[in-house]
């Protein structure tokens, strides 16, 4: 079967997975990017969020054949950057993390938001994470964490 090529966290990679395989499965099972979580498998919860060409998408409802030539960034890739470290520090300071299962997806949503808008207001933040469900926090402390991340990483976005 033809290889599918794409860029993963800055690296050129390819997979021989079936093009209708779910992107989440390829990222997790083949590339061991287990920061990509499966919370629902129906595009509702956002735990499997990644960036595709700089925009947030749900990897559980994308077929890998659809991302040929795309530039993908996973939570692991984002976490390894200065921006990722600012997000992480903002969350930690705000106490944003509880069970954590949604947090990698939240970090991806945060990165996507701050790239478009480095100084978002409360409503813009809440809109940006509206596809990322969290059952623990009620969201306010995550919103606070994103505000702190924007300040900590000021100039990075």
């Amino acid at each position: 079967m033809r290889e599918i090529r794409f860029t993963l966290n800055g690296r050129e990679v390819s997979t021989s997975a079936h093009p209708m395989a779910r992107l989440i499965d390829v990222l997790r099972d083949e590339f061991r990017m287990t920061g990509v979580k499966e919370g629902c498998g129906e595009g509702e919860c956002g735990a499997c969020s990644i960036l595709k060409d700089g925009r947030i998408v749900n990897s559980c409802i994308l077929a890998v054949g659809m991302i040929e030539g795309a530039v993908l960034e996973t939570p692991e890739g984002i976490a390894a950057t200065d921006r990722g470290r600012a997000i992480n520090a903002g969350y930690a300071e705000a106490g944003a993390v509880q069970c954590g299962f949604c947090m990698t997806g939240m970090a991806v949503a945060t990165e996507a938001l701050l790239r478009q808008n480095p100084a978002p207001d409360e409503h813009q933040i809440r809109t940006a994470i509206s596809g990322n469900l969290c059952r623990c926090t009620g969201y306010a402390m995550i919103v606070d964490g994103i505000k702190r991340a924007a300040i900590k990483g000021s100039g990075l976005w």
Partner: peptide
């Protein structure tokens, strides 16, 4: 700072 914050955010 919660002890589990960093790893849960980074995906580790």
């Amino acid at each position: 700072q919660r002890v589990d914050s960093h790893g849960k955010t980074s995906g580790e």
